[in-house]
Design a protein around this nucleic acid. Structure first.
Lengths: 338, 338
DNA sequence: CTGAAAGCGCTTACAG
DNA sequence: CTGAAAGCGCTTACAG
């Protein structure tokens, strides 16, 4: 691209205003100077359309603050994560901080590469929903002063602040709810077992079964469902088996969507109960309306961002862990009797 | 935050490797040097855990490339925009470019402030879904070499590359579809008239009415629906009027969600036809399944990103405009007879 | 209070 | 091919 005109520099502003570079820097940074000098600087800034180069500023300042943070999530297009991203952005923007988001797609190598790219650009902090890999590669940057908060899942081999949902508790509530409606054959459909939330939700499911004296049938537990297609196949497979489940606990939003689709295609939506983990748009107008365990995606993002900024503001206490409650929302699909 | 250890610099790598700063820079940038020197540099990099400071690199290089682009959209949490963001990110990441996204919330002042923040951080280019405001403030940066592509909507008072959906055509198809199913009283529910897509969709609606000799009833046109609540009130208001509509054209995804909710609460979902603009998750399991005009959110993002990188790669031809087709997906709600 | 000078971590002509 | 030096656009001690 042809660069028809460079952007004006502080030095040029100084020349136009007839003051020194230092004075322009002071005015631009809000340091008090003689009113007359300030006026000349402001006029020159206006005239030239000057905007400070923040990257040069960051490079030179003592605190090295870039006013940019990074956010690493599984997928910015997943409604759970996009709600989380938005709330992080809101907290950040209120401090004139920008947010760079990246999608790891649950690939530890991609997570690390994105983290390196962000760190190479000098982000002040990182909010990470970690993959199942090893996050100890971040230890060095943490030592160097990069603020670090993990959200949705705890990191592996690294001690840092954490904000998560009560995944086991939510899964327990979902499963117990189905048991209370007479179900004994409840299928568990889950994400890959490398993901902490998937493990926790399976644990909650198992604890609910055990507490209610329902024997677990390993054939009803399907894990590693990533793509919607896999969730669909798993449901089809379960329902075609000799002794099919009477209820499904779909432990993640995309899995819920896939499962509901299959139930509809088979015309079984009124006969097989379903409780999903994570609330979904339109859940209340689906036939039947979807009962879900809702987690507070925006709350997770907000809390994580606030923790991050607390660290950047100087809080150097021991690592904290915050767990947000989940809420069972009864709408119909979870109250289908056995 | 206490900074226990600085990050190692290129100068320190040079000292450890026993070579000059220039040589380290060459090795780090992949320029050929003596194998023995390269080995020593690599060893030192490994030993110190060195990572190049990209912001310093950008400041000094002749081309000033930061390998970062900005994306300004209405709301990263809106599924349409989050799908668009993801596809932009995918194109960018394939070039090791990071994407900084910001939500304008349709506020021209916020759009401009976010743009200034991005520009101050030296982004190479900007993909913008512009608000109804004036985008000429970007002209100076465009002159200075910042690549610029507008997506979803054209800018005001600025000539630049544009990627949009065929909004009028999609709205025409939706309206004509309802007319073909016997409807004459079709309500239009739209976003604020400052938004170009809202205007275009209203135009398509009107053209379809005119072409089919259906007189427009101004009382059936509701605009300025931003929050889901407003969409709900508008639908309630329309349906309680003396001469209510028999069909709704909800011309945006959030409006569709609000309207479907109201129809369900009133138990009218099988009696009032509905076609929405924009496809929605779970649309096929809603009662009745939602007929929509789908636009290709991922395609918009991909095309915009590819245009942006073409400009960054040196394309300096005249501005281009790309319009992507929409698709009517018949699922049930749009085929409810009058 | 203001300005001249040094320097943040790099890249890049320029000599050797 | 390698290194010493200049300099990107700023901030910040340091003199005056």
């Amino acid at each position: 691209m042809r660069r028809a005109a460079r952007r004006p520099t502080m030095r040029e502003v100084a020349a136009v205003a007839g003051v020194s570079l230092s004075t322009v820097s002071r005015v631009v940074n809000g340091v008090e100077v003689q009113p007359e000098l300030a006026r000349r600087v402001h006029d020159a800034v206006e005239l030239l359309g000057y905007r400070r180069d923040l990257t040069a500023s960051t490079l030179r300042r003592a605190d090295r603050v870039s006013a940019t943070i990074g956010l690493l999530i599984e997928d910015v297009a997943n409604p759970f994560f996009s709600a989380l991203q938005r709330s992080v952005e809101d907290v950040a923007v209120s401090r004139s901080v920008l947010t760079v988001a990246g999608s790891s797609d649950e690939d530890p190598a991609r997570e690390r590469q994105l983290a390196e790219e962000l760190l190479a650009r000098g982000v002040d902090g990182l909010i990470v929903a970690p993959t199942g890999g090893d996050q100890s590669y971040l230890a060095r940057d943490r030592q160097a002063g990069v603020a670090l908060v993990f959200v949705d899942r705890p990191p592996n081999f690294l001690d840092a602040d954490i904000v998560v949902s009560d995944n086991a508790g939510g899964a327990y509530a979902a499963t117990a709810h189905l048991i209370e409606h007479g179900h004994r054959r409840i299928a568990f459909l889950g994400d890959r077992p490398e993901i902490h939330t998937a493990v926790e939700r399976l644990r909650g499911y198992r604890e609910a079964l055990a507490d209610h004296a329902v024997a677990e049938d390993p054939g009803l537990v399907r894990q590693g469902l990533i793509a919607p297609d896999q969730a669909r196949s798993a449901v089809l497979d379960l329902l075609r088996a000799r002794n099919p489940p009477t209820a499904l606990f779909t432990s993640q939003n995309l899995i819920t969507m896939g499962a509901v689709g299959v139930l509809h295609e088979l015309g079984l939506q009124q006969r097989i109960a379903l409780v999903g983990f994570d609330d979904i748009a339109l859940a209340d107008v689906v036939d039947p309306p979807l009962t879900v365990v809702a987690q507070d995606a925006a709350g997770l993002g907000r809390a994580a961002a606030e923790m991050l900024f607390a660290r950047l503001d100087g809080d150097d206490g021991p690592s904290r862990r915050l767990e947000l409650a989940t809420t069972l929302i009864e709408r119909g699909s979870g109250e289908v009797p056995a």
